[in-house]
Design a binder for these strands. Sequence first.
DNA 1: TATTGTTATACTCTATAACTATA
DNA 2: TATAGTTATAGAGTATAACAATA
Lengths: 139, 139
Amino acid sequence: MPVKTDSPACEAWTLLYELALAEKPRLNAIAGDFEIKPQQAMVLRLLAEPQTMGELAERLGCDNSNVTGLVDRLEQRGLVERRPAEHDRRAKLLVLTHEGERVRSEMSKRMRQAPEALAAMPAAEQRALRDLLRRALGR
Amino acid sequence: MPVKTDSPACEAWTLLYELALAEKPRLNAIAGDFEIKPQQAMVLRLLAEPQTMGELAERLGCDNSNVTGLVDRLEQRGLVERRPAEHDRRAKLLVLTHEGERVRSEMSKRMRQAPEALAAMPAAEQRALRDLLRRALGR
DNA sequence: TATTGTTATACTCTATAACTATA
DNA sequence: TATAGTTATAGAGTATAACAATA
């Protein structure tokens, strides 16, 4: 009786997740260089486009009440502004300040750099990997 | 003057990270089904092999003092045991209980399932992706 | 009535510094 | 002296429930 083997997709997922996990310390360290916490870095990333508290909570996959504190801290740091939303006086629109844009841009540039394991691949394999992922994610 | 484009490795990394990020709510929900927190699930994952507090801290990329609380909660849940380490009376060896093994095994089985975006790929592309990642990560 | 965001509360995760028991 | 783990402390992230203002 043969041992049941994982499907190729499962193994690919396991490897892919391991790679992302292994990079976490690097990403956290980059956030630290800008003196913000990992989750605050995530918020900055998502605020490339202005959006409301509720939309942000949705994209973070967390409760609304949680976003209040996250945004409080970023606002105190001068990276984010709460503005009245035009269509609904209950809602608030979150917008990056100049400084917020600067931090988001420089931080993203560094985080976007490929991990050593990918950067070391032959160029043809890098392209093959990119194309497979593009198609899988519908890009 | 041409716009500078990301290298294929950078774009692959961006897509790959997006995929892992998009799966986080699913993984957290699975941990929740076993009534443990995401970080406790990570500890369980890493305890496939017994190890000391310090080794676990190293693999979690966090401080030693942090592990004390994490293990306290898992121990109260009856999933982990602290045992004396033979080679060093200062150290403690962490070992999963029977119940801990059961939870780790069932939880891992579910978390290992490939995300929809990968499972939906043609079989040949799944294998190609797996093989590229295997080689990149040296497996 | 329902929804947006806040507050109050409680728990988890995190690091730093001081401590203990061993090495 | 140095190291493994704990404790004390403080701050950050998280969800739930109750609330104010608005829809």
